[in-house]
Design a protein around this nucleic acid. Structure first.
Lengths: 166, 166
DNA sequence: CGTTGGTGCTTCAATTTCGAACAAGCTTAC
DNA sequence: GTAAGCTTGTTCGAAATTGAAGCACCAACG
């Protein structure tokens, strides 16, 4: 990237340290958020993410599969967590009319309430740790970076799909 | 602390989407790396991280606690994974002379070999997905961002430590 | 029709992670 | 010295995550 084509087996030290820092920072961020959610709101980060996606969705409802796609985890994990959220009455399941294999998950009133309690707390943490301390230019740059990475990952996924069906 | 006075309860949409993308991208990156490590080299990402840290360490050895600090996980998880790596003979444990509560973990020859096999594969993936597609300025900017976040997290940890001992 | 292939979700066993409780050993302050 | 309090690392049980296998259903082509 900076030092052009790069035949060595190892990354140059500076580059390696960028990647290490990246891993460390992301882990620490998630840990922080997870802890705060559990301490103050009794849900895990995965559960919170589910509530957020549902709240954003049309009709506050979503299909299991799409949910699994958005938060990035195995489908079986979503089944499990939606089960948990169901026990807490934060979420409800409905059979899907159009496709009877399918399941809709819908935010309940209690679910919406819980989210509205938790969200300001978490969002202020996100601002504090992640966003407040960066300026406009940096935010713009970050957005670009994220888009780049996203596109790279998409390419990679596409390449995989192209390879395996053979 | 969480529900205090607070009028912008929600992040603005653009800002929110930065955070969401960030979460998504980091998860996808880790997933990719994990899969490649398991498919081609028979170790998980956590195990790989342990090997990397040990290789970087003086004498290719490290104390359990420091290891847990570097890769960001619970101490018990490190005990577990070092156990696994021990079974595979990639790592060895030694009692610590200076402090007999302590344990040293040391990379074995086989461990070093395994790492040298895996590293180019993983690093090229990291380059491909993460680093190649960004230019020098962006890399610089990213480094700054990571430092900022790191510092924020440090402050936060410090604030915690200051609060709890009371 | 029917049968073949693919999809959506769940179930299950295996693995991993976490936090709390613990044992053992250091350290400090009297 | 020794008692009180930290630190280090492990153990334990509970929770979460994963991938594979399975089940029920759709779609589409003969």
């Amino acid at each position: 990237m900076c030092e052009g084509s790069f035949e060595g087996r190892w990354l140059s030290p500076e580059v390696n340290s960028v990647w290490n820092r990246f891993l460390t920072v992301t882990h620490r961020l998630e840990q922080r958020i997870d802890r705060r959610l559990q301490d103050f709101h009794g849900i895990t980060h995965t559960q919170y993410e589910i509530l957020v996606r549902l709240a954003d969705a049309e009709d506050q409802a979503m299909r299991m599969g799409e949910l699994a796609g958005r938060i990035v985890t195995a489908k079986s994990a979503v089944t499990y967590q939606v089960g948990k959220l169901g026990e807490m009455d934060l979420v409800e399941r409905f059979k899907c009319e159009a496709d009877s294999r399918g399941t809709w998950v819908k935010l309940t009133g209690a679910g919406r309430e819980r989210l509205e309690q938790a969200a300001p707390c978490i969002l202020s943490l996100v601002r504090e740790l992640f966003l407040d301390s960066i300026n406009c230019d940096q935010a713009l740059e970050l957005t670009k970076l994220l888009e780049t990475w996203s596109a790279n990952l998409d390419d990679h996924d596409a390449a995989d799909r192209a390879r395996s069906p053979e």
